[in-house]
Write a protein that binds this DNA or RNA. Structure first.
Lengths: 248, 248
DNA sequence: CGCGAGATTGAGTTCTCTCAACTTCTGTGG
DNA sequence: CCACAGAAGTTGAGAGAACTCAATCTCGCG
């Protein structure tokens, strides 16, 4: 899988389909001597959402599941009259798979930049899956991997006590996820604001800024505006105590 | 579903099978005119583990999936030479379902009290599921619900910034989960130590103790040793900003 | 009954937050 | 293309929350 680089203004940096977590569903299945490709009828490809728009809102009926083709999302819940960031999603990742057997979206999703999504109708997918065991199996695999991923992220971000560890964990989690989607783990763009990151980690934005600076002065990372470069993956991982990415 | 109460010394307080998250697998399936019950061959029921023993260790090969019949577990990861609590499991809940398509356990599981587990071989389960669509569908449902549950817990515990909110979220999360398994949401035993709770929430044990006391003085909870009683569910939920349990 | 793990309490320190001022960046309209 | 306005980012100072350390208490178990 080739490592992908920064997007240009004109051509969105679409994730490679084979690096997308929805690819098992998009790959044609062979049943007996026939090959069925459901993507034509089932998947709406690369639906455009302008920066700032909501893909769906908490409480909306959930009829589709989404995979990000290009762009990034911020997920938020409405709590006590205000909003709180609960996660981010990057290209190749799925959005709200857990709504597969639930009726309503439990959070909102907002585009952090111009974004393209692939969409599948839940109904259609479940129908086909119930009829064709191979599709069911693949869907199971997708959901299983998602479970794993969510759990791994939760472990990483949950277990780290002080702010410095939380920040390091956040950076590494993003790095790991970018690498899973075929992008560089060592260099990526933080499409969310410092305030978003702070909100997500339960810190103040000033603390986030100060710790970015501290990690930079320790030469573990380099950060210029929204551009993040990891300089010393090993030390950063040692910080967090979990090895996700093997730095050659 | 009848609400269950505290266990006695002699008879373990087994969860009702129909409240167990594994019940879809344990319920016989009808295929055509035949009914198949795999539980006899597939499920090892109520395997006993003494308090303090490990069910499995991080890095062990994962060949079984577990459901708790009676007792509670603490899940931990080994990080930087020490251990960190990442979650707890109560009767009716599953343990490490995410290992279904992975080879190794990503964390350790230790019995917090004398515990009985039901076990299913992954291989067997996957084999049967791949042959019988109905089983596959049920398994899918189990995994889906698990995904939902993990996500809901993560949302609750993640989004709450200060220590008081974290503690309230922890209490409510346990209450919610006990109610799902058919026990009282308002009264249950904290089988883990204060230190375990502190470790889990990323706080010091002194802070946990002081905040329990504070919530008690505010008459939201009553806590006597390990016995937790929720006195004002509404206020507690308002604290956290999410309504999980409807208090009549 | 005595031991030891766990729980509790107090005091002082450190970390993180809040508030406020200021700078930089970004996007929009002239 | 520049000017401007608003959003985002940065920095410093003081306040408050949570931590650490240490002493003491309690309870379950042998």
């Amino acid at each position: 899988m080739s490592v992908k680089h920064c997007k240009t203004a004109n051509t969105p940096d679409y994730v490679a389909c084979d690096a997308c977590k929805l690819s098992p569903i998009c790959t044609p299945v062979n049943v007996g001597e026939h090959a069925y490709d459901f993507t034509g009828t089932m998947v709406k490809r690369r639906h455009f959402f302008k920066k700032g728009t909501f893909i769906f809102q908490q409480g909306d009926a959930a009829s589709l599941i989404y995979a990000i083709s290009a762009g990034t999302l911020k997920l938020l819940v409405h709590v006590k009259g205000s909003e709180r960031v609960i996660d981010f999603r990057i290209p190749g990742e799925l959005v709200d798979i857990s709504s597969l057997n639930e009726g309503l979206h439990t959070y909102s999703a907002q585009a952090l930049e111009d974004t393209y999504l692939c969409e599948i109708g839940k109904e259609t997918l479940n129908d086909i899956a119930s009829q064709i065991p191979q599709v069911q199996g693949r869907l199971m695999n997708v959901v299983n991997k998602e479970l794993n991923s969510i759990q791994k992220s939760a472990m990483l971000l949950h277990g780290n006590v002080n702010s410095e560890e939380k920040i390091a964990a956040f950076i590494l989690n993003l790095a790991w996820r970018y690498s899973l989607s075929g992008y560089s783990a060592a260099q990526f763009k933080l499409t969310m604001t410092r305030t978003d990151i702070a909100d997500y980690l339960g810190l103040s934005k000033e603390t986030v800024i100060r710790l970015f600076k501290k990690l930079q002065q320790a030469e573990l990372i380099k950060i210029r505006g929204k551009q993040m470069t990891i300089l010393d993956m090993d030390k950063l991982q040692h910080f967090v105590g979990i090895k996700l990415i093997s730095s050659s």
